[in-house]
């Protein structure tokens, strides 16, 4: 959001002058998607969760059978089976019957409820309760997180670990992302030397190129270190012109201070 400050205005003007490249996309495996920008919505191919499921362990009973239970007149159920995660279906508990359920298990549709472990007293194959339970108590409904075809992750989202998890939970491995822009980096100045070279009096190590390359990667671009350009104007112009042909963006470090501003300004005029 532009807060109206001179800096924000300058950023906004610059950004507005650029054209986006929404048409340039590519398919990316999920394992390589961290930091990429999603180019098209990811939609849920099925309801999520794909079935009603227990969100606590306990006993599954018909809700209607629990009505009227209290401390003075507990109601007992006969435990007739177990439902565990991985089971493909869940039967309807019969009248006066209960099924042990584990967290995450598939649960049948209809007016059933889960009695949590501390709300029932198990004795042998019986469990008794002293309060009623409403229908669908502690049951997560099919499609609770996402309905089929709903947008799970919207285009324009920067993919983080959380989005990767969401998309993986949908069984999707390939997504459409914006092509990562290629950013060519130049360092300028006769005094600038590669950062691995021995330092000489008056020289300056080029730490900017590798630093800015890292920043480009962090921002979602693909850096290309074009190297150090001396103060030869014509050579610099030629190198930048060549780079423009294969780059989406150019970054030049150095040469913008008062003494060198004309050099960079002239260079921009020459290549622009």
């Amino acid at each position: 959001m532009n807060d109206g400050s001179p800096l924000a205005d300058a950023q906004q003007q610059f950004v507005d002058a650029l054209s986006n490249k929404t048409n340039e996309t590519e398919i990316c495996r999920l394992s390589a998607a961290l930091g990429r920008t999603l180019a098209s919505d990811v939609q849920a191919p099925t309801d999520m969760p794909p079935y009603h499921r227990a969100i606590v362990e306990g006993w599954l009973v018909n809700s209607a059978d629990t009505q009227g239970a209290d401390e003075g007149s507990p109601i007992s159920f006969n435990i007739t089976g177990n439902i565990i995660p991985g089971d493909e279906s869940c039967p309807v508990p019969g009248t006066g019957k209960a099924l042990r359920v584990a967290t995450g298990s598939i649960v049948v549709d209809g007016p059933v409820a889960i009695i949590r472990p501390w709300e029932g007293k198990e004795d042998g194959n019986m469990v008794s309760i002293t309060r009623p339970f409403p229908p669908r108590f502690f049951i997560e409904e099919q499609g609770y997180d996402l309905k089929q075809d709903a947008t799970a992750v919207a285009a324009g989202t920067i993919i983080s670990a959380a989005e990767i998890g969401t998309i993986a939970s949908l069984g999707i491995d390939e997504i459409e992302v914006a092509r990562a822009p290629k950013v060519t980096l130049f360092a300028s100045g006769d005094e600038v030397i590669p950062y691995t070279d021995p330092l000489k009096p008056g020289s300056i190590r080029d730490s900017n190129s590798i630093m800015l390359a890292s920043a480009v990667t962090e921002a979602g671009g693909v850096p290309v270190i074009a190297g150090i350009m001396g103060d030869n104007f014509d050579k610099f112009v030629a190198a930048v012109k060549t780079a423009i042909e294969s780059s989406d963006m150019i970054v030049i470090s150095g040469g913008t201070a008062v003494g060198g501003r004309d050099f960079i300004s002239d260079l921009l005029k020459e290549v622009g």
């Binding site: 800096l7 950013v183 730490s207 900017n208 800015l212 920043a215 921002a219 963006m249 970054v251 913008t256």
Partner: peptide, 25 residues
């Protein structure tokens, strides 16, 4: 093609890139 020229002083180079380079990307 956007061209961004940042200061040579490393902290300012990074600051300038973060403000305008990241916005451009």
């Amino acid at each position: 093609t956007p061209i961004i020229c940042v200061a040579g002083h490393p902290p300012e180079a990074l600051r300038g890139f973060n403000l305008f380079g990241v916005a451009a990307i």
